[in-house]
C-alpha cells in the first residue's frame, strides 16, 4: 500500500467518524434538557466543524483553509461567551438567591 493510498483511506475514515460525531452532537442539541446543554453542544459542533475544514484542506491540497478554521474558532468562542452571559442574565431565579432556588432547580437529566 502506497502512502497516498493510506492517506486517502485515513481521510475517508476521519470523515466518517466526524460525520457520526456531528450527528451525535446534533441529537444532544435537539434533546438537550437545558439551554446550557445546547450551548455546550453548539460549542463542540464548532470544534467538529474545524476538524472538517482541516480534512478538506488536506484533501483538496489548498492549505489556506486554515484561515477559515481560525475564523470559525474565533466566532465559536465569541458565541459561547455571549450565550453564557445570556444564560447568566436570563435564568437567575426570583430574589436572586442561589440556594433559595431549590424548588425550581433542574436536575439536568433528560
Amino acid at each position: 500500500m502506497t502512502a497516498e493510498r493510506f492517506l486517502e483511506i485515513c481521510i475517508l475514515m476521519s470523515l466518517a467518524l466526524l460525520a457520526v460525531s456531528f450527528l451525535m452532537i446534533t441529537v444532544r442539541i435537539v434533546i438537550g434538557p437545558t439551554l446550557a446543554d445546547r450551548v455546550l453542544a453548539l460549542d463542540s459542533l464548532v470544534s467538529i466543524g474545524i476538524g472538517f475544514i482541516a480534512i478538506i484542506a488536506i484533501k483538496t491540497g489548498y492549505p489556506l483553509y486554515v484561515d477559515v478554521a481560525i475564523a470559525l474558532g474565533l466566532v465559536g468562542f465569541l458565541a459561547t461567551v455571549a450565550l453564557a452571559r445570556f444564560i447568566l442574565r436570563r435564568e437567575r431565579p426570583e430574589g436572586s438567591e442561589i440556594a433559595a432556588a431549590g424548588k425550581d432547580r433542574k436536575t439536568g437529566t433528560p
Binding site: A36, A84, I98, R105, K106
Partner: peptide, 11 residues
C-alpha cells in the same frame, strides 16, 4: 464561563 453561568442560574 458556561459552567459558572449554569451554576449561578441554578443547575
Amino acid at each position: 464561563l458556561l459552567a459558572r453561568a449554569a451554576y449561578i442560574s441554578g443547575l
